[in-house]
Design a protein around this nucleic acid. Structure first.
Lengths: 369, 369
DNA sequence: TCACTGTGTGGGACCGTTCCCACATCACAC
DNA sequence: GTGTGATGTGGGAACGGTCCCACACAGTGA
């Protein structure tokens, strides 16, 4: 009984002394079966450890109830990036609730290969997480398989795209720091080709300019060899801004950047540091702390993403939260609608960004409230 | 041409003007086909965006080339836990290399349901990550499907089990702190029912006792309602140890624990704190820092797992590394062997643990070397 | 001319389900 | 006794591939 791996419905029916059709009706639960036949079949199923083959079912139903999730990764592994990890967690839980299973694949360069894999697996739909080279979108359009994109980089209006409202988040970050009295800003901006980073930067800058501080963001300028160290913007009586762009958004890049510039902070050149994600912020903050610059007393530091390390740091990092739970949940729910052929699904869904004030930007304003 | 989702081999063959068999030979690449027939079929495939169905293939091959990964989670999502995230990253990459795809599922309580899901999907094998209730192992044994366990909690000698060598890691941690001159220890120990935590604790204690410091670990004692605050071990001229057990191994539990006890550290009662994972260590360390206890000058702090937050912290956390890359890679490789019916696969595979000395335990000994 | 061999192609069973349809049985009314 | 409808069960095609086997055809040697 234990030697065989999987029994078929035919074998099950044989043991129960009924036909395939009858056994199928009992197992799948749709169709008539008299009580005693029913019991005989179930008893036989128990005995054989019978598990119906989802493969065969998918074959006839032309539907697998599987969803493919492709996560872009650069050189680095990506699931361990806490923001994507959170999103994937939520996707998994939401999928379970709707009866889907998840095929997970990370993708570096061979984007088409991953796509083909998913297509061959006949997944019912796709969730594309993070930016992908743009021709992947054209590729996926050729097959008309339902898909949604999460936190991607496309501006294509056809694509159903779930993103945090990064521009508004950037504005709110600027407001918070301004309200705390800061007028001399340093900005660490991550890769400009990534939608999130460039929108966070432009939102931050726009709000500062509205508040009377010239920002002078040039969103399209290329970072040079490793790090672009922007010049200060024009000064006016209100204050000024300096933007440094980096081609990566990692902790180590944040470190590297600040290692070149901590002297300027020590001399009091800047009172606030905003980074377009938490890792850049933490890398920079650690260097400041190591060189005796106190946070938040001398310099306020702020990140973006509300990852776990930000919360756990000492001082804990003020940041902007991204609704990973909402994004993950909705990604599956919307994909399910698309699979069901539902019309009128919105193309761009934005999630509110909220400033999470913590120790790294504590100021009098916060104290009073 | 764009209206249909998936074409079948029959339709492809029809368009190319050949038989199903011939088309199959060209597409799958095994079997003869004359150059012009070959070209006709490939051209037709291109035109139809033909992708062979892995579902149908799996049906006849009785083999899906899919691997199921089940990750235990408590109340919390789990992929975002950096250690498991890392392991999953490695599993994904290794699987890709060997031609497998990954079905990922997180599991809280309905363990059998996840198992059944995987069985119905007819995955070729299973990777079980982290502890599972023990009856799950009995369950999986009933079906004879190949499986390996990663970082689990079982002592079952049948199970192919990949784990870090937590006992040796604990010993090394003790050695490091002892060599730095510490004699008064506090230990935060995570859930005793988890193999890793209890072995790390017992390894640490054993080494201390060998060095002449009574440890008095009682590995089986139950934590009370929320936190078990053990008593100091017997003092002798060499030093002493106090063990606190917590039912969770989270950052917040580390905090909670230390919030009750930081006064004792401030008074100089303990010069070193060892936690059985990084999160517990960071939570405790943050509370110490917030109350003005300096690390490492007054208290040395040490964790376990070598997660990213540990590396990034200020002060960066001394920890014990777990070879997540090796574990993930080997999990897939060994499972592949089991699937191939290979005999003589070792049951317990242990990975070396290495102390990573960082700022949180810097001492004269380290300076000299 | 005939048997023989090799080569490329087609026919069709099979994998494990679902589901439509046919059919057997029975109760009941006419 | 026959027709009718409800009820439960079985037969078999279909899903999209793989692969074994048969077969047509050409080239070769006796």
């Amino acid at each position: 009984m234990e030697t065989k791996l999987n029994y078929s419905l035919r074998e099950l029916a044989q043991l129960a002394g009924v036909s395939k059709s009858t056994a199928s009706r009992v197992i799948s639960g749709n169709g008539y079966a008299s009580p005693d036949v029913r019991e005989r079949v179930l008893k036989a199923a128990e005995k054989l450890h019978y598990r119906p083959s989802a493969v065969a079912r998918a074959m006839v139903a032309k539907r697998t109830h599987n969803i493919g999730v492709i996560v872009f990764r650069d050189k680095l592994p990506i699931v361990s990036h806490t923001l994507y990890g959170k999103i994937i967690d939520e996707i998994l839980m939401a999928a379970e609730g709707l009866g889907y299973s998840i095929f997970l694949k990370t993708d570096r360069e061979m984007s088409f290969r991953s796509m083909d894999y998913m297509l061959e697996q006949r997944v019912d739909g796709l969730i594309l997480v993070s930016r992908l080279r743009k021709n992947v979108i054209d590729y996926v359009k050729k097959f008309n398989i339902p898909y949604v994109m999460v936190n991607g980089s496309t501006e294509d209006p056809d694509v159903v795209h779930l993103v945090s409202n990064d521009e508004v988040g950037g504005e709110r970050a600027a407001e918070h720091l301004y309200a705390c009295g800061h007028r001399r800003f340093w900005i660490n901006a991550g890769p400009g080709e990534h939608r999130s980073h460039s929108l966070r930067l432009s939102g931050f800058c726009r709000r500062l300019e509205q508040l009377g501080i010239p920002c002078g963001a040039e969103p399209d300028q290329e970072p040079d060899d490793s790090i672009r160290n922007g010049k200060d913007s024009v000064r006016n009586d209100e204050g000024y801004v300096r933007i440094a762009k980096s081609p990566e958004s990692s902790f180590d890049f944040g470190r590297k950047l600040m290692e070149k510039h901590y002297e300027e902070f020590r001399r009091g050149g800047y009172s606030a540091l905003f980074s377009t994600n938490d890792m850049l912020a933490l890398g920079a903050m650690k260097v400041l702390l190591e060189h005796g610059v106190s946070v938040p007393e001398e310099v306020a530091v702020m990140g973006y993403d509300n990852t776990d390390p930000a919360r756990m740091y000492h001082p804990s990092l003020t940041t902007v939260s991204v609704d990973a739970a909402g994004i993950g949940r909705d990604a599956v729910a919307i994909l399910d609608k698309l699979i069901g052929g539902e019309e009128g699904v919105p193309r761009l869904i934005e999630y509110e960004s909220e400033v999470i004030v913590r120790q790294s930007t504590k100021c009098k304003e916060d104290m009073q409230e």
